[in-house]
Amino acid sequence: MKYQATILIELKPGILDPQGRAVEGVLQGLGYRAQNVRVGRVLEMELESPSEAEAHRQATEMAKTLANPVMEVYTVEALKERA
């Protein structure tokens, strides 16, 4: 089976995110009431796997490999079967 996985890697809460701050400043300048804007990274990938559970396990393992535990957290945001 083919799956589509989406992994989100973001800075741990509490760690200063100057990119998020810059974006927040611009959004507020445009009149939006956005607060605590954080910038993360999204990884999209196709996965070949016998089951959804196995695909999720693989995606989680890759997220763990790619994220830096010193300052980042990761989540497998979505997993869906591909046609």
Partner: peptide, 17 residues
């Protein structure tokens, strides 16, 4: 070296970007 865990901590984007 920090990414490889040979030294502790991490190096993040400069505060002033």
């Amino acid at each position: 070296l920090t990414e490889a865990g040979l030294l502790p901590g991490a190096l993040l984007a400069n505060t002033n970007l």
